[in-house]
């Protein structure tokens, strides 16, 4: 879950310049936070072309509140089923985190039932953590379900992916970390997401992972991200797009890499924050094998798809977008 677009938007009045990603060609990227359910096949294609080899899709709020348990069950099933398959069609390895998001934790009647089915899902293949969980309005209900899910993660020995609130962010972030420590979680197994200049220092000082969401208008811009890496280095820092149903950019990770390169950061530093650190953090689930980034491309070949499809006969057909002929 990412952004609240109700806040004042800066009107983008820059010239629209198509991104030049040539400088990072050949590099591999890992986007540890992106809501592919809300994205199109064009996005998948563009992500694969830009070098994204694997991603994590955290369970979140779909924009429309759910009213029944089965909606949650089907959503979780789609994260480990249909969406994973869709991603594999483009040779991108898809992982997910499973959890009850903070907004819907406020529907307590439903939240109680969701807690009962979570154990069925968190041990599935490719589930790399409990997430994204944490605070939104910082209500007592959010507090309760955040704590219960921390316990669940501890028991399952899974990393935790924390969503930090948009409003009252600094306090919300501190409180999320305090509670995680209170429940005996190792900060090294907790990824605190949506950081900014105000939160990063404390998150790193306390031993947590600090994730940064490059999201236009409401979160970080990637020029600010370059400065963060200059100031804090690359240890326990990672970049994600958190692209979802809002105005967001599924290429935020490779674009940020390109900008870092242009601004003179070393290839090694870029690799740490756009690939390696996310793997190190989430591989603590025991569910990430980098060899799979290659095999997903082969599985592809047999994983065919219905009718007028994405994939037929083992090759990945591409639409020629410059042609008006559709055949």
């Amino acid at each position: 879950m990412c952004c609240n677009h109700s806040s004042e938007k800066e009107t983008a009045d820059h010239n629209i310049v198509p991104a030049d990603l040539r400088s990072i060609r050949g590099m591999s990227f890992f986007d540890p936070h992106v809501h592919m359910t809300s994205r199109t096949t064009d996005d998948y294609q563009a992500m694969a072309d830009a070098g994204i080899v694997a991603l994590i899709e955290p369970a979140f709020w779909l924009g429309q509140p759910r009213t029944g348990l089965d909606s949650f069950r089907d959503y979780y099933s789609s994260l480990i089923g249909w969406e994973r398959f869709r991603s594999s069609q483009f040779g991108i390895k898809h992982y997910c985190t499973i959890g009850l998001n903070s907004r819907e934790a406020n529907n307590e009647r439903l939240a109680e039932q969701v807690m009962e089915i979570l154990p069925l899902f968190i041990n599935k293949e490719g589930v790399v953590g409990v997430g994204e969980i944490g605070f939104d309005d910082q209500t007592p209900a959010e507090d309760r379900y955040y704590r219960l899910q921390l316990e669940l993660a501890k028991e399952a020995e899974l990393p935790v992916q924390i969503h930090t609130p948009h409003r009252d962010k600094k306090k919300g972030t501190q409180r999320s970390m305090d509670i995680a420590i209170e429940h005996g979680l190792d900060p090294y197994r907790v990824i605190v997401d949506h950081n900014n200049e105000e939160t990063v220092k404390e998150v790193l000082d306390r031993g947590f992972w600090a994730a940064f969401t490059i999201y236009p208008f409401t979160k970080m811009g990637n020029e600010r991200m370059v400065e963060i890496v200059r100031q804090y280095g690359t240890e326990r820092i990672m970049v994600n797009s958190a692209a979802d149903w809002g105005i967001s950019d599924p290429l935020a990770v490779p674009k940020t890499a390109a900008l870092m390169k242009e601004r003179g950061l070393s290839d090694e530093d870029i690799r740490m924050v756009t690939y390696r650190n996310a793997i190190t953090a989430f591989a603590q689930s025991g569910q990430i094998d980098e060899a799979d980034f290659e095999t997903v491309k082969q599985i592809d070949q047999s994983g065919r798809f219905e009718g007028n499809s994405i994939l037929r006969g083992g090759q990945q057909p591409r639409i020629d977008k410059s042609s008006i002929i559709i055949s």
């Binding site: 069950r73 099933s77 480990i80 089923g81 994973r84 089915i117 899902f121 293949e125 490719g126």
Partner: peptide, 9 residues
Amino acid sequence: FSAAEMNEL
């Protein structure tokens, strides 16, 4: 069946 991921199916 009702909570299966791909390989479980």
